[in-house]
């Protein structure tokens, strides 16, 4: 229960929160495509994007601490992609460094856009908006399940690590790493079993397959 939701800030009443979910999704996708398409000589455009997003973050009353935490989570992945750029020779070190910075900036700005979208749009509203945009039902169903079970699974993983810790596991030595393997294996088995039970619950309430499913119509 201690895990926070993707859309924990999404239930406020600012103008950004009240805006149509479909419009926000469209603008976010367009924004990401625009940022990804920017070339090395368009640093000014990136700066404009940052200022614009900072304005929207303020308008949406999103706490900067939360926003920075998510950025930090994404940073290692962005840095790995950036490093891969460095392995391809493209002129002098200055050019390489600029490319490295550009890749990281684009990744972080894209995540910022998605964060703003999820922080100002409740997840059920997002699903309804995607349905209106003719998104395939099976995709919406899977997104709904992810939203419902992601944090439950995080709780389960946490309980399993507590069980390991309470039996003296510290994870400091290589010999102890195999327990992580056990943990992951057990986690998959439990998730699979939960999947079976959830499907039984769906059948019990008359589910006959995605083609007959009438939600989000």
């Amino acid at each position: 229960m201690r895990h926070q939701f993707l859309d924990e800030h999404a239930y406020r009443g600012t103008a950004l929160h009240r805006a149509s979910g479909g419009l926000k999704i469209l603008f976010s996708l367009a924004g990401i495509l625009w940022v990804v398409g920017l070339g090395p000589g368009q640093a000014k455009s990136l700066a404009v994007a940052v200022l614009f997003l900072a304005g929207l973050t303020k308008l949406g009353k999103i706490p900067p601490g939360d926003f920075l935490k998510r950025m930090l989570l994404v940073f290692p992945i962005a840095a790995m992609i950036g490093i891969s750029v460095l392995t391809v020779p493209r002129g002098d070190h200055g050019v390489q460094a600029r490319l490295f910075g550009l890749v990281i900036a684009k990744a972080l700005i894209s995540v910022w856009i998605l964060f703003l979208l999820t922080a100002t749009t409740p997840f059920p509203v997002m699903l309804e908006s995607l349905a209106r945009m003719r998104c395939p039902k099976i995709f919406l169903m899977l997104l709904g399940f992810c939203y419902r079970y992601l944090f439950l699974m995080a709780d389960e993983a946490e309980r399993m690590t507590h069980a390991l810790a309470s039996r003296g596991y510290e994870g400091r030595w290589l010999g102890q790493a195999r327990f992580i393997g056990h943990l992951i294996g057990m986690f998959f088995v439990r998730s699979y079993e939960r999947g079976e039970r959830v499907f039984a619950a769906m059948l019990s309430r008359g589910y006959e397959g995605p083609e007959h499913w009438r939600a989000y119509e």
């Binding site: 709904g144 419902r148 079970y149 039970r197 619950a201 008359g206």
Partner: peptide, 27 residues
């Protein structure tokens, strides 16, 4: 049918969708 673990039974993003699930399947 009510399952032992309610988390297995409530699989939708909102309570409304969960309660409505069977009714929607019924048309």
């Amino acid at each position: 049918l009510l399952f032992q673990n309610a988390d297995d039974q409530l699989f939708c993003p909102t309570v409304y969708d969960d309660v409505a699930f069977g009714l929607r399947n019924r048309g």
